[in-house]
């Protein structure tokens, strides 16, 4: 296995996903297979090749610093699962 269970646990944590033991096994196999497949790239000589940053040759795409009307708060919060006092409400954030 090129990807270990520990790896999968770690990336599930970073991704904020819970995995059952079964899922952990399944994803470890799946990710290992895909990573093995992707490892074919390690055979290609990429010395001195610039990574593609953008497929189009774009640069300096800017916007003028001019204020537009913002949205109504009701609209902004319309899809929020829980709100209070004009804000989105979440469980207590522990500093």
């Amino acid at each position: 296995m090129s990807v270990s269970k520990e790896d999968v646990k770690h990336i599930a944590n970073l991704s904020k996903l819970n995995l059952t033991d079964e899922e952990l096994d399944k994803y470890t196999t799946d990710l290992s297979n895909i990573v093995d497949f992707a490892n074919e790239l390690s055979n290609i000589n990429v010395d001195g090749v610039k990574p593609t940053a953008h497929i189009l040759d774009i640069k300096n795409v800017f916007r003028k610093d001019e204020v537009d009307a913002s949205y109504d708060r009701e609209e902004i919060l319309k899809n929020a699962p829980s709100k209070d006092a004009g804000c989105i409400s979440v469980p207590k954030v522990v500093e």
Partner: peptide, 10 residues
């Protein structure tokens, strides 16, 4: 911090 509900408001 919402002292009344104990929740955090964004």
């Amino acid at each position: 911090h919402d002292a009344y509900t104990g929740d955090t408001l964004v």
